[in-house]
Nucleic acid binder design. Sequence first.
DNA 1: ATCGCCATGTTGACAACGTCAACTTAAATC
DNA 2: GATTTAAGTTGACGTTGTCAACATGGCGAT
Lengths: 196, 196
Amino acid sequence: MADSYHHGDLRPALLDAAARLIRDGGTDALTLRALAEAVGVSRTAPYRHFKDKAELLVAVAAEGFERLRAALRAVNASGAAGLAPFEAMGVAYVRFAVENPAHYRLMYGREALARREVPALQTTADAAYYELVALITAGQASGALRTGDPEALAYVAWATVHGLASLLVDGQMEQPDDVEALARLTARTLLEGLAG
Amino acid sequence: MADSYHHGDLRPALLDAAARLIRDGGTDALTLRALAEAVGVSRTAPYRHFKDKAELLVAVAAEGFERLRAALRAVNASGAAGLAPFEAMGVAYVRFAVENPAHYRLMYGREALARREVPALQTTADAAYYELVALITAGQASGALRTGDPEALAYVAWATVHGLASLLVDGQMEQPDDVEALARLTARTLLEGLAG
DNA sequence: ATCGCCATGTTGACAACGTCAACTTAAATC
DNA sequence: GATTTAAGTTGACGTTGTCAACATGGCGAT
């Protein structure tokens, strides 16, 4: 089946190769033709599995959200107490972004997204976000965090960590040697507040 | 000179038209051919003023940074005391992003940026960032903010506000009716901290 | 067993895009 | 007034996403 007319398992093979192309060469490297060639198939074969290039990008992004969610879930599952898990989740989030920059940009960028409304993608993204909300509500229950609308707190926390990730991933600042330390500092500053 | 062979004032006309195209149709609408036609000139005329499409995008982004800096500078110039200016600057920043989404994405995205190192662009961007740093150091001097490395505090503040702007601009959340209130809430939460 | 269906894959073509090379125009300089 | 040269034009090329028409072969019904 290696060189038969029908590939037999093309869709997952395409997603795998797409992730690899994006990782190695950035978003620009993910061209349908290069992707098809990487899998050993003709240029238009992907159209049997994805309506569009955009639809393929959505699928790649969804797979990224799964991985991000797994990373955040691990923090929640660790059962750490106090403020430690907040730092840990911030670090996990930023680390994912820095280790998968093009993937992260695709997930939270506009390219694949709003232009086609894909509920499945939103669901997957929400699942990742929910890990953060769960951490916040647990923190409030234990008294580690102040009271208030957990959605609002989660939103600010998300914005902060996403902002840091975006700045790093888009090369807006010189990336420091120790990204983890920067993420930890950011999380702590967010917890303690800026006001005197 | 309207329909003469030489346009006479092409470069600024291109930048104007580019900003308009981006505002109306998003980044995708900014194609060199459409741009040239909008100005009434042949497709390759822009090459006399910009080496590349990328170089043109850099110029558009730089102009955006100028406008953003002006908006932030107005907050600093207002001379408000206490914590009010921090909310005001957060609001001004987010408002700029929401009102110029494609422009903002271009400024802080990767398309035009790291792929060609343009010191002039970095300088302009730094000038905008400096407005935030200035506000932070002033806040520390007046005792409104806690002590500590002002660069670090500014960095967290920037990440938060940029994260919020990015989420809104990239359509990651349903955009609320009152963006200003959300920005204000975010700024206040950042000031007060999440911990209990 | 075999026939036909249809999901899967291929080939050829097209328009849009960024960009280069060669040419044209007219404004500026001596 | 001649010439240099900045500014603009035309034609072409390679790359990309995508469509239409065609080819293949695995699978169920007979």
